[in-house]
Amino acid sequence: MIYLVLFLAVAIGYVIALLLKAKTTHEMSMYLAFSGAFLLSMTILELLPEVFEMPTRRIGLFIIVGILLQICLEYFSKGAEHGHVHLHSEKRNFPWLLFFSLSIHALLEGFPVSEENNILIGIIIHKIPVAIILSFFFIKAKYSTGITIAFMLLFALMTPLGNLLSNHIEYFQKYATEITALVIGIFLHVSTTILYESSKDHKFNLAKLIVIIVGFTTAYLI
Score class of each variant (00 low, 15 high):
residue 101 S to K: 00
residue 52 F to A: 07
residue 222 I to F: 15
residue 176 A to G: 09
residue 110 G to N: 03
residue 47 L to S: 05
residue 197 E to N: 15
residue 161 L to C: 06
residue 60 G to L: 15
residue 66 G to K: 02
residue 22 A to N: 09
residue 26 H to D: 14
residue 169 I to K: 05
residue 59 I to F: 12
residue 180 T to V: 08
residue 112 P to V: 10
residue 118 N to E: 04
residue 67 I to E: 06
residue 2 I to Q: 12
residue 177 T to D: 09
residue 17 A to S: 15
residue 31 Y to K: 00
residue 102 L to C: 02
residue 89 S to W: 08
residue 220 Y to K: 01
residue 178 E to P: 00
residue 109 E to R: 01
residue 171 Y to D: 02
residue 142 K to F: 04
residue 148 T to E: 07
residue 202 H to L: 05
residue 65 V to W: 05
residue 11 A to Q: 07
residue 127 K to E: 07
residue 87 L to D: 11
residue 50 E to C: 01
residue 152 M to I: 15
residue 151 F to V: 03
residue 133 I to F: 01
residue 108 L to A: 10
residue 191 S to P: 03
residue 86 H to Y: 05
residue 161 L to D: 03
residue 69 L to W: 02
residue 153 L to E: 01
residue 110 G to Q: 05
residue 201 D to I: 04
residue 218 T to A: 11
residue 131 A to L: 06
residue 18 L to N: 14
residue 29 S to Y: 08
residue 99 F to P: 01
residue 197 E to A: 10
residue 135 S to D: 08
residue 69 L to S: 11
residue 93 N to S: 10
residue 61 L to V: 15
residue 220 Y to V: 00
residue 108 L to C: 05
residue 39 L to G: 12
residue 11 A to N: 03
residue 71 I to S: 10
residue 200 K to F: 11
residue 48 L to E: 11
residue 87 L to K: 13
residue 202 H to I: 09
residue 80 A to Q: 14
residue 42 M to Y: 04
residue 73 L to A: 04
residue 148 T to N: 08
residue 74 E to D: 14
residue 10 V to P: 08
residue 183 V to Y: 09
residue 34 F to K: 00
residue 206 L to N: 02
residue 178 E to H: 12
residue 199 S to M: 09
residue 116 E to A: 12
residue 108 L to M: 11
residue 71 I to L: 09
residue 191 S to Y: 03
residue 213 I to Y: 00
residue 96 W to K: 07
residue 57 R to H: 08
residue 31 Y to G: 07
residue 132 I to Y: 10
residue 188 L to C: 09
residue 93 N to L: 12
residue 93 N to I: 07
residue 168 H to N: 15
residue 202 H to D: 13
residue 186 I to D: 04
residue 100 F to G: 08
residue 35 S to D: 12
residue 38 F to Y: 13
residue 159 T to G: 06
residue 197 E to I: 11
residue 182 L to W: 10
residue 160 P to F: 05
residue 118 N to A: 08
residue 186 I to W: 12
